Computed example of a mutant assay.
Amino acid sequence: MARTVDSAHRDRLLDAAARDLLECGLPGATLDRLAAAAGTSARMLVHHFGSRQALLDAALERARAWELDRARAVLPSTKDFPSALAGAWSWFGGDEAHRYFRLFGQVAAIGRLGDEQAGVSRARLTTEWLTVFTDGFAAGGHHPAAARRLATGLLAQIRGLLLDLDATGDRARIERAYRDYVELLT
């Protein structure tokens, strides 16, 4: 008789694996490390997901969904998008967003080396953020083409500032640069 998969248990394992990736990163994400984080065995992870790669793909998808849900909460698509944008640095520059930035930066770096992760491609890492920002600018009254151009510049600015923050730790200078850029937009 075939075993049925307990989807609630599988979801808990998946959540634990996604949290581990956010805390520890993609390098060194062995089945043993992910199993320890989930309080189970490597064998059980393979039972539920089929392979380490399938687990990683699913965990990256879960983490990505969490990030985008949080981004839409911080940056709702409303007429007052510029105000939301002005206050968003507290999230972008904080620990929670830094974990996402680091993890998906690792995914992008691996992709640049020719090993795209299934489901979370480098292109998707950009297009999903462009959609968040484009929707916000459009809700704020910008024509769709202008909203897309503004979103492109904003995404580049934020990524550059986050790389700078990661490299230098000069939070005051970077926060000021973000505020200046948002003032230019508004």
Rank of each mutant, 00 (worst) to 15 (best):
V132F: 06
L26I: 03
A63I: 01
V46L: 08
R33Y: 04
Q53I: 03
E128G: 05
A63S: 02
L155R: 13
T127Q: 13
R99H: 04
G93C: 01
A177R: 06
T4R: 10
P76C: 13
G50D: 05
D20C: 14
L68T: 12
H98F: 08
T186Y: 07
G119F: 11
R10Y: 07
W91P: 07
L130K: 02
F101I: 00
H143P: 12
T127P: 03
A156Q: 07
L26A: 04
G169A: 08
L22N: 11
P144K: 12
E128I: 01
Q53M: 07
L68H: 15
G87R: 12
D32A: 15
R149D: 13
G136A: 01
T30H: 01
S77K: 01
A18D: 09
D80S: 14
D95Y: 00
T131R: 15
R148Q: 09
L150G: 01
R64Y: 13
R43Y: 05
P144Y: 04
A16H: 08
D32E: 15
W129E: 10
L21I: 04
K79D: 09
D95S: 08
R72D: 11
L56V: 13
Q157I: 01
D57M: 00
L165S: 06
D69G: 13
D95K: 02
G136I: 03
V182D: 12
A151I: 07
V107M: 03
A118D: 10
A84M: 01
L103Y: 04
A8L: 09
A17W: 02
F137A: 10
G119N: 07
A109N: 02
C24G: 04
G28N: 03
E61H: 10
G153P: 03
R62C: 02
E116Q: 12
D69H: 10
W129M: 12
A8H: 12
G114H: 10
R171L: 12
H98Y: 03
G39R: 11
